[in-house]
Design a protein around this nucleic acid. Sequence first.
DNA 1: TCTGGGGTCCTAGGACCC
DNA 2: TCTGGGGTCCTAGGACCC
Length: 424
Amino acid sequence: MIALVDVNNFYVSCQRVFEPHLVGKPVVVLSNNDGCIISRSAEAKALGIPMAAPWHQLSQFARAHGVIAYSSNYALYADMSQRVMQVLARFSPQQEVYSIDECFLGLHGVLSDHTELGLLLKQTVWRWTGLPICVGIAPTKTLAKLANHIAKQRPEFAGVCEWEKLPVQQRQQFMATMDVGEVWGIGRKLSVRLKQDGIHTVADLAASPAEQLRQRYGVVLQRIVAELNGCACLELEEVTPDKQQILCSRSFGQPIFSEQQLAEAISTYLARAAEKLRQQNSLAGAVGIFIRTNPFRPNEPQYRQQMVLPLTQPSNDTLKLTRIALRMLARLYRSGFAYAKAGVMLTQLQPKTAIQGHLFLQTADPIKRAELNATLDAINRRWGRGAIGLACAGNKKPAWAMNQQHLSPYWTTRWPDIPVALAK
DNA sequence: TCTGGGGTCCTAGGACCC
DNA sequence: TCTGGGGTCCTAGGACCC
């Protein structure tokens, strides 16, 4: 048996923990650059504010209705997420952290009544972190997701839905009234295609013949249907596998024009990506960059280009990777464009132990270089991100820095921001 | 003026091998 | 007039997730 636990309106709820006067009011959290709406309180949803809507199109409406907006504060959310995950881990030996606000818990061998356990989880997380959660319990991940959805939608469940405890008739009825697009793994495109084939509800999907589905839609959908019918195809992944690629990209707070500024951005992103790479003890076999103008302004000249370069020898060295990235930028850069976004990709990742020597290649003393990178990481860990870096990444807040006009205090991760009542 | 960021998996098709 | 069969590996693109 599997439980899927997730935090309701996670980012909004995090803001509310430290500003309780927000409870009961329409609140939204915006993406980087204050671009789109990525989290909404129930009150904001009730106003009809759609997910992923561009904020600048809605800010007038929002002002009129007293909607309160926050810039996203990922340091805060990541910290709160860790706290929730730690609380939940106490209740099961098997935990898969699926995303910043969700995890699966294996309930195999957990003796207590599952619904009661769910209620206990809810109560404990609430008391210890101030965050509201919902719990779905079922024999497969896909059904646990479905049960969680029901727990959220229907107040009579009080936030906990155990699928197998529902009478068969009620399960049938839920599935018959739920849109096929609600199923985990079925997105916009697939649900349109399914509906064209006469599959409208979850019940329709669950009753479809497996072999036919596989032929027409592929193995992914076939597995989903098996899961809906109680046959587990997706394992609980307790060990987080190493990332296969690392990407770091940002839209700029304002358009930039010069190669110099793009180089600063690329160097900054690369330093971040390489740090993540070293954190998981991997080497990159290839490095890539991309730059692009703003596609939302079709009347302005558009340019987008990317390039990936395989390395003769896999590396996690910020200096070496930066040099390569900037050489690529020199090849891609064209003057006369208003650049809106750039990014860096590290791919073909492999464990550090698997390094293959190169017969003819002489590089900088690899041990010294490794020590230098470790020192960079240690200083940035101790003194905060960006405390030390390469000169080509710039040394002051750049003109293209992210827009964050509605940023809240950091509350839990910065000394001056810690609420006084808590600090005492 | 202002439109996010970071991932995974699967499939089809091409290159190449014997 | 006629042009095999079976396999692997890699890449690009599309779909999905939060």
